[in-house]
């Protein structure tokens, strides 16, 4: 009952989603997007290298 109420209030009500969208985040600028994108590329490159290392270790 309690857990259902929590689910109802949070997951299904969409209130945390709306709060995060309108209160806790804003619309980034083009420069911010570009910097974020560069970071995404760096993370992906790192992820790829780690995966390759793991694959080599397995063999």
């Amino acid at each position: 009952m309690g857990s259902f109420a929590i689910e109802l209030l949070t997951k299904y009500s969409g209130i945390p989603y709306l709060a995060q969208k309108y209160i806790f985040t804003g619309e980034p600028t083009q420069e911010q997007y570009e910097e974020t994108f560069l970071l995404a590329l760096k993370i992906q490159a790192w992820q790829k290298s780690v995966m390759e290392e793991i694959e080599i270790e397995r063999r």
Binding site: Q20, T25, G26, P28, T29, Q32, T36
Partner: peptide, 11 residues
């Protein structure tokens, strides 16, 4: 802060 916060989540 809000803008960077959105960037972090999007990433």
């Amino acid at each position: 802060w809000k803008q960077w916060h959105a960037c972090e989540h999007k990433l």
